[in-house]
């Protein structure tokens, strides 16, 4: 992109609002649904801003191929995949380097939360499908994947919730959109288990001073705590509604 065009599109205006009208510490609107797929053992769907992601969980079930099975715990397998129509320019449906990396990163962010040792020799298969991408897909994917696992009835220490924070035009901002991610100075996704206060993923892309880093991490953790509430409500929603109808 030519330098002039980049200057024209300011990411933060004079009043401190961002291009989509948000305050620096404001999340994008989030909508989560649980149990949307009937064929999968557990499933969830999230809309975070313009991101739309769907996940299905199978298992614990027999491991295929069998030699992958672990003798002392379950194997968590994760596939993060972007649909060819999820980005502006068609994305090849074959797994890219980035998708393979994200699959690993998401798996490792979820592993500490799942009681894998309860189900030796089995596998838990998690499929994440990005239908529309707009920055922060790994965070949204982790948030929703942990709900899909809970929906499948897999015992977990806590729900995992993820959120990104970063630096755009010198300002620290929460929950970056695609444009902010690409044109901004830094992006820092964090995955977190709120009740046991443990971070399961922390990545950084870009440059931050030590002071900024600390502030950004805290900002992301605050975002996580906000999403955690929405996440819990989404998981309970179906049953709470039924309970009210039946007991009226």
């Amino acid at each position: 992109m030519p330098a002039k065009a980049q200057e024209k599109q300011k990411l933060i205006d004079k009043e401190g609002k961002r291009i989509d009208g948000r305050n620096p510490d404001e999340l994008r609107p989030i909508k989560i649904e649980v149990g949307v797929l009937s064929n999968a053992d557990g499933s969830a769907y999230i809309e975070q801003g313009k991101c739309k992601i769907l996940a299905g969980v199978y298992g614990p079930r027999e491991t295929h191929p069998k030699h992958l099975a672990l003798p002392d715990r379950a194997l968590l397998q994760c596939r993060y995949h972007m649909a060819p129509f999820s980005v502006e320019e068609r994305k090849s449906p074959a797994p890219s380097r980035r998708e393979i990396e994200l699959s690993k990163v998401i798996r490792e962010a979820l592993e500490p939360a799942v009681f894998l040792e309860y189900y030796p020799r089995t596998s838990i298969d998690l499929f994440i499908e990005v239908l529309q991408a707009d920055g922060g897909t790994r965070g949204a994917a982790i948030t929703m994947a942990s709900l899909a696992l809970a929906d499948a009835g897999i015992p977990m220490k806590d729900l995992v919730v993820a959120c990104a924070a970063g630096k755009v035009e010198g300002k620290l901002v929460l929950d970056l959109s695609d444009a902010e991610d690409k044109l901004g100075e830094a992006d820092l996704p964090v995955a977190y288990m709120p009740t046991i206060d443990a971070v399961t993923l922390l990545q950084m892309d870009g440059n931050l001073t030590l002071e900024e880093f600390e502030q950004t991490v805290n900002m992301a953790l605050n975002g996580c705590k906000q999403i955690y509430k929405i996440q819990k409500e989404a998981l309970k929603a179906k049953y709470v509604a039924l309970k009210e109808v039946a007991e009226e």
């Binding site: 939360a113 009681f115 809970a150 015992p155 977990m156 220490k157 806590d158 729900l159 288990m193 709120p194 009740t195 046991i196 819990k232 998981l235 309970k236 049953y239 709470v240 309970k243």
Partner: peptide, 22 residues
Amino acid sequence: IVTPGDLLAEGDYFAGDNTYKE
């Protein structure tokens, strides 16, 4: 209705079905 990770009790309680103690 509780979700995974909800703090249920503290102190002198035993963990029954679908709970864990740390």
